[in-house]
Design a protein around this nucleic acid. Sequence first.
DNA 1: CGCTGGGTTGACACTCTTCAAATTTCGTGG
DNA 2: CCACGAAATTTGAAGAGTGTCAACCCAGCG
Lengths: 243, 243
Amino acid sequence: MITDKFLLGRGRDLLSADDLQALEGTVSNVVEVASRTVLSRRGEPVYASTLLVDGFACRYMDDREGRRQLVALHVAGDFIDLHGFAMRVLDHDIVTIGPARLATVEHDRLARITETRPRLTRTLWFSTLLDAAMHREWIFRLGRLGAEGRVAHLFCEAEARLAMVGLVQDGRFAFPLTQADIGEACGLTGVHVNRTLRRLREEGLMTVSGGQATVLDRGRLCRLGEFDPIYLYNGNGWTPRLD
Amino acid sequence: MITDKFLLGRGRDLLSADDLQALEGTVSNVVEVASRTVLSRRGEPVYASTLLVDGFACRYMDDREGRRQLVALHVAGDFIDLHGFAMRVLDHDIVTIGPARLATVEHDRLARITETRPRLTRTLWFSTLLDAAMHREWIFRLGRLGAEGRVAHLFCEAEARLAMVGLVQDGRFAFPLTQADIGEACGLTGVHVNRTLRRLREEGLMTVSGGQATVLDRGRLCRLGEFDPIYLYNGNGWTPRLD
DNA sequence: CGCTGGGTTGACACTCTTCAAATTTCGTGG
DNA sequence: CCACGAAATTTGAAGAGTGTCAACCCAGCG
């Protein structure tokens, strides 16, 4: 099923078979798009939401001089742009990083769901709140961590989320962001990201190259990035209220 | 009505009289609490959400050494903690800044609303997405602006939001955050906030003292903080989809 | 085979933090 | 209403962390 990985792989735990079927029924066929394809633009009304079936995407905002700040990173299974359903217009742009596979859901069909399936609606709501929780973690990362901590935190989050959808093997996973992209996510320059990655490599914490990342010492990497995956609400006692 | 200022004063525009009445019916009596009252703590299950009727509150996360990062600021009319409804447990703490007046809504009553009132549900959902939009703006602030820009942006947002609930007169409004609080919101030290506020004052952009802020030159302050209030979705053509 | 985009490194400038101390404001009990 | 102590603000000097600019390398690809 296209929605297999929805909610970082736990859609099927949170939803009844019936609701899951209803969601699957709203989803279009999968299409492939190239790297750096713009999926949504600030200020333009959106009439459909996108399910990222495979690949990576990010949301970003540019400042006056065109310097970019990533505000979210999306991985396989994310319902990108569900925010656009309730808001109709978004305040930021969305673009793929690396080739990706997408499915879309018309907003009219989502609207019908909210009228007939309160539990599924709550699950969709919850998934947007997960985005908000990640936003908060990014605020923390930028406000309270130095360069090493920020990069460490970014990779800890990526590893944790990709692991939830089965895309990590022995700490190794696809990671198509360039060093400049990482800088745009962490509020650093590409040059400084380069130096920071070298330090992390020299300390034996992690490596990135050729679109592949490897976490070598997750314990120390998490400590450095002050990372606690509990905000991803996957096990550990934190579960949404859906009844 | 207690819900008068809900959604920054536009609750009554977005909701039918009937839905508004239903919401009002779920709200408890107003209670007063002192400054620095903790309303909710990370990891503790919440069974009711809080409507901030008057005053200020903030959400924050502490790092390992106890240094604090604010991740959101709330003003009168904000439905604090609606996130707690769908998530049950929050990843951060919430505390009042200055004395405040609160009303609470039991989650059970909200649950009943989601089953019977899709439009009101969507409006509540939208209000949590507004929080997410503000989170994104905070990420941008921390990632792409220097000290002056960050402080300018914070005050622009505060002014804009307070103006929506009629709490600004001639650019003047209550603002009970200390300089240390401002630093915790902007990823700066209190000392540097002090120097930054002095510069903003000397440039004739704004002043703060004694819990009162005054915006003297909104145009230049907004430019400095790269602030565009459109993400608050109040007029300017950006309105939620609620049908 | 040369171009292009990403990665790597060095030198230097600048912003912000840290630490320390003085001053002012605020809250509270006498 | 005043006095006192605590909290908040203000200022200075020195140092750490990033940004900026510039050059060079390398791999992939037309």
